[in-house]
Each structure stands twice: as C-alpha cells, then as structure tokens.
Design a protein around this nucleic acid. Structure first.
Length: 421
DNA sequence: TCTGGGGTCCTAGGACCC
DNA sequence: TCTGGGGTCCTAGGACCC
C-alpha cells in the first residue's frame, strides 16, 4: 500500500500557526516580488484562480482578503518539522516536495484508522493540517489524496481500492487534467482524441500511448491500472543543475545593477553547491526582458562559460559569470530578470586531476575551502547575505518586492513569537 | 506601474566512431 | 540512378511537477 501525505494549503497553514487571526479568513500567499498568488486558503479559492497576478485582483476584493509575501525560510523549516514526525510513524518515506511525501504501509496496519491517528499527531506537533490518500500506486494515491481533500466526509483520509465497487465511478468523474503527469498540452491532445476522464485513459493501450506520446504516458496508464512503475529520485540526492534567478523589483538596463544581481545569485547557487558537497564545471548566465510587454523589444540571451577547473569557490564562479554577462549584455534592452545556472555538477571526490587543466596547489585549495566554510557558517548563523562577495547596495532598484512579509518565527531568535500575559 | 522560481525526465536529431 | 549500418554521446527543447 502506497500513500501520499500532503499538507493542506501549506504556505497558508504555516502562516496560520503563528497568526491565528488568519483562521477562517481568505488568505493568499504571493510569489517572489509579490507577483502572483501561489497558495490560497479554502476561503479564498472561490474568488481567485491559482497563479493570478496580484495587480489583477479587484481592489474591493483586496480589501476583504489578506495577501502575504512568501516566507520560504519559515515554510522550509515547518516542512522539516512535519516530515520528521511523518518519519517516526511510517517505515519508508519518500520526500517529494516541500509539502508532500509518499509513504509505504505494512499490509497489517489498519490503514485508515492509523492514518487518522498520525494526522492528529502531526497537527498537534506542528499545527499543520494534512490529508492522506492511499492506494496501490503513486498515481492512484495522488487521486485518493485529491478525494480526501475535496470530500469533507472523509476527514482528510481516503483509500482508493482498485477492486472496490466505486472505483470505476470515481475514475469516470475525474477529468484527466487532474491526473499526476497530465499537463496542459497532453490534456488538450488527449481530449482531441476523445479521452476525457481517468477511466477512459486507464483503458487505453499502454503500448499505443508509448508509440504516440511517450513512455511517461505509458507509465501513467499502467499506474491507473494498479501496476506500480514510477520511481522517484530521492529528495536529498544532489542536484545535477543549480539555478538561482530572480525578477527585478523594477526593470533595468544598467550594467552595474545587473552585475550586482548576478553576484548575489551566484553566491546563493555556490552556497547550495557546497552544501551538497559538489563542484561545478561551468556556469550559464542568462538575461530576460519582460515577456508580457509584447510591444517592447524582446531579448533573452544566455551564455555558458567553462571553469578552468571544477570548483565550488564563489569568487571563481562569480568571475566566470561576470565574464559571461558582459558577453550578452546590450544596453538597448530593459531587463526584467537575470540568473545563473551551474552545469556539469559532480561530487567533490570525483574531481579528476587531468593533464590539461590548470591545477591549484593543495595549499591554496585548503585555504580557499576554509574561507568558503567560514562564509557559509557566518551566513547560516547570522542570516543569509551577512557576508557577500563584491559590493551589494541595500536599496538597489532590482531588489525584490516583499511588502507583506511575516516573521521567520522558527529560525531567527529576534523574530520569535512574543506572548503578552 | 504591477505577471515566480527551481527542478526532473524524455526525445529527436546531429556528431562522431568503427 | 543507386553512397552502410549500428552504436554512443551530447544537446536543445518540450513537457511536466510543486
């Protein structure tokens, strides 16, 4: 038996733990730069579709609801707390995203009751409400979870039995767009072929789907039939690419601004790189103009620079990134977003001493390593961006907009919740 | 005025090799 | 007239996810 445990309206729930006034009130969480609505409380869902740009929300509605900037430091820490509890109650847990994990259950556990029990413990330990869907494959567990959430009578736990009397009825009433792995494009193509609900898709020939679409859709069909064939890569396996990018608070064509942004993004990416004990062979720099301004000229260049030798040293990567930036920067465009991607990432121990690369001597490697370690430790303890490389103005025009940010209640002593008695 | 960010997997097609 | 065949590796782009 496979289960999917999913935190309800996760970002909103995190905010509510520390701000009970938000309970039973329509709340939305905005993406970076306070751009789009990326999470909604149940009370907000009837009024605002997912992903709606904040500026398009009518002002009379804005007055009745609460919109908050996203506070990823808080959500990341709360996620860790939830899944620490989950790991105590299920023998095999696969973390899938910040708010979801697949669980594997023993056949002899009285599953529904046991899941309800764990659900209560998670709520008690962390304040976060969760839903649990159970079935025989990951795709079906996702569907079960969807039902657990949607239909109040299940109280957040539902088991989808492929031999049960209502299995067909449930799948017939599920549009294919709700199935895990069916996105916008596939949905349109399948509907054009007359395949509209999950039951129809389940009855398609897997081989036909593989030939006309891909092995991915073939697997989905098999999973709907109860044949498990989707393996997940472990949440903790080191990343093969690391991206750091942000939109600017305001568009700019000033090279000095963009250099500053690229330095900051490169520092963030290099920190992630060191955290997973990896080194990178190359860095790709990219710029984007605003794609929503179709009347202005568009320019979305990118340029990859190979490192002279694989490294995790922020300074070396910044140097390469700045070189790449100067190759693609054109002052006649206004840029809306800039970022970098670390490519060809390998584990530190895989570093090959090859004949043609410039080899640093051991002493300088050691010295640079300790410098990076000190920077990481200080930033971890005293707040990210305490130590940065190169100049960083506090109020540059490209900085993110985060006007409604809550406190980092669980990770900063000076932002901890204060009680008055 | 204002429209997110960070990932993965798969496939097709080209380059290259013997 | 008629220009091999089979394999690997790499890359760009598409599609999807949360």
């Amino acid at each position: 038996m496979i289960g999917l445990i999913d935190c309800n309206n996760f970002y909103v729930s995190c905010e509510r733990v520390f701000n009970p006034k938000l309970e039973n009130h329509p709340v939305g969480i905005l993406s970076n730069n306070d751009g789009c609505v990326v999470a909604r409380s149940n009370e907000l869902k009837p009024f605002i579709p997912m992903g709606m740009p904040a500026f398009k929300i009518p002002s009379d509605l804005q007055e009745k609801i609460t919109l908050l900037s996203s506070n990823y430091e808080l959500y990341g820490d709360m996620s860790q707390r939830v899944f620490e509890t989950v790991q105590n109650y299920f023998y095999h847990v696969e973390l899938y995203s910040i708010d979801e994990a697949f669980i594997h259950l023993n056949g002899d556990q009285k599953t529904n009751n046991y899941c309800r029990y764990v659900q209560k413990i998670i709520k008690k330990n962390t304040g976060i409400p969760v839903s649990i869907g159970l079935s025989t494959t990951k795709t079906l567990a996702k569907i079960a979870n969807h039902i657990a959430k949607k239909d109040k009578k299940h109280e957040g736990v539902f088991c989808l039995d492929i031999h049960g009397p209502d299995f067909r009825h449930i799948l017939e009433n599920l549009p294919i767009s709700e199935i895990w792995g069916i996105g916008r494009r596939l949905n349109a193509k399948l509907i054009a072929m007359g395949i509209e609900n999950a039951w129809q898709l389940k009855n398609c020939s897997p081989k036909f789907m593989q030939q006309h679409f891909s092995v991915v859709l073939e697997r989905t069909v098999l999973e709907l039939r109860g044949i498990s064939c989707i393996e997940l890569t472990d949440f903790h396996t080191p990343k093969k690419n690391i991206v750091a990018s942000r939109s600017f608070g305001q568009s700019t064509n000033n090279l000095f601004d963009i250099e500053e942004a690229i330095r900051l993004h490169t520092c963030r990416a290099a920190e992630k790189l060191r955290k997973q004990h990896s080194i990178t062979h190359a860095v790709l720099v990219f710029l984007r103009t605003n794609r929503f301004h179709d009347q202005s000229l568009q320019y979305n260049p990118s340029f990859a620079i190979s490192m002279p030798y694989p490294t995790d040293d922020s300074r070396e990567i910044i140097r390469a990134a700045q070189k790449g930036l100067r190759k693609i920067f054109r002052a006649e465009y206004h840029y809306h977003k800039a970022g970098i991607m670390l490519l060809d990432i390998i584990h530190k121990n895989q570093r090959q001493l090859d004949f043609f690369t410039h080899i640093q001597n051991d002493q300088s490697i050691k010295r640079n390593n300790s410098l990076m370690q000190v920077i990481d430790r200080i930033n971890q303890q005293m707040g990210s961006h305490t130590i940065l490389i190169g100049g960083q103005r506090k109020k540059a025009r490209w900085h993110l907009k985060r006007e409604q940010l809550s406190q980092r209640y669980t990770t900063r002593w000076d932002e901890i919740l204060k009680l008055r008695i």
